[in-house]
Amino acid sequence: MRKSIRVKLGLSAGTLMALSSAIVATPAQAATAAPNCIDAAATIRDNFGVYDVAAHHNSPDQRISHNDMVAVAGGNYAANLRDAAGVFSNNQRLFDALDTAAKGGGPDNRISPEDVAAFIARGTCG
């Protein structure tokens, strides 16, 4: 496959190797690039009040909606808060797992503090 890419792009083998090495992150780089879902959930737990009011400005209801997550992910918040929100707002499967962690059932777009705590206690992203 590399040969066909190299030929189509007109790159030398050395240039192709340099490019492919540059896009593969080391474990340390990957760890700092984005939080895993458990670390992201811990950030949300520790800052629940920020997420709670992100989309509906200072009207706390002890629930985080997808709109709240999107508002934090794309808003003027600290990078760690944006990154944690992005983990869930960009992955519906993970968002739904977080949403249903405490009581199961179907997702209701209302993540509670209990959902966050149960998700972290489970200790897995799957």
Rank of each mutant, 00 (worst) to 15 (best):
P113D: 04
D68V: 04
S65E: 02
I120A: 09
I64N: 10
T43L: 06
A97Q: 12
N91F: 09
H56M: 03
G123L: 00
V72W: 10
C125P: 03
D46K: 03
D46A: 10
G74T: 15
G105N: 02
R63S: 06
N36V: 07
A73W: 07
S21V: 11
N58V: 06
N109P: 04
Y51G: 08
Q29S: 11
P35H: 01
T32H: 15
I120F: 11
I111Y: 12
A34Q: 15
R63E: 13
T124V: 09
L94E: 01
V72M: 02
A40I: 13
G86L: 10
S65I: 02
Q62L: 01
A25K: 13
S65D: 06
P107N: 07
A28W: 14
N80I: 09
D99H: 05
I44V: 15
D115H: 02
R122T: 07
N76Q: 15
T124L: 05
R122M: 02
N67M: 08
V116G: 02
F88T: 05
G106L: 05
R93W: 08
A101K: 04
A22K: 12
S20P: 09
P107S: 08
I38C: 00
D83M: 13
P35D: 00
R63K: 05
A102S: 14
M69A: 10
F88C: 07
L94T: 01
V72P: 08
D83E: 14
A55W: 03
D96P: 01
A118S: 12
N109H: 04
G123D: 00
E114I: 13
A85V: 13
N109C: 03
T32D: 15
M69I: 07
I23Q: 05
A34T: 14
D83Q: 13
G86H: 07
A118K: 04
D96I: 02
I111S: 02
D108Q: 12
I64W: 15
F95Y: 01
N47C: 04
V53T: 10
D39T: 14
L94W: 05
D68H: 01
V53M: 05
I111R: 06
V24Y: 03
Q92A: 08
S20K: 14
G105I: 00
N67E: 09
K103E: 15
Q92S: 08
N76I: 12
A25D: 07
I23H: 05
P107G: 05
I23D: 08
L98Y: 15
A85M: 14
N91L: 08
F88L: 08
P107W: 05
H56S: 03
V72Q: 05
S89F: 15
G123I: 00
G106D: 10
N67K: 15
A41W: 01
A25S: 11
D99Y: 13
H57R: 14
G49A: 14
T32N: 15
V116H: 03
F119G: 02
R45P: 10
R122K: 13
S20N: 14
A85E: 12
R45N: 14
A25P: 06
P60L: 01
C37P: 02
V50A: 14
D61W: 00
G123H: 00
A84S: 12
N36S: 05
D39G: 13
T43P: 11
G104V: 11
V87L: 07
A42C: 11
Q62C: 01
G106T: 07
V50T: 15
Q62Y: 04
L81C: 10
D61P: 00
S112C: 05
A42V: 13
D68Y: 03
I111P: 08
R45L: 09
G123P: 00
S65P: 09
D108M: 06
A84C: 08
L94S: 03
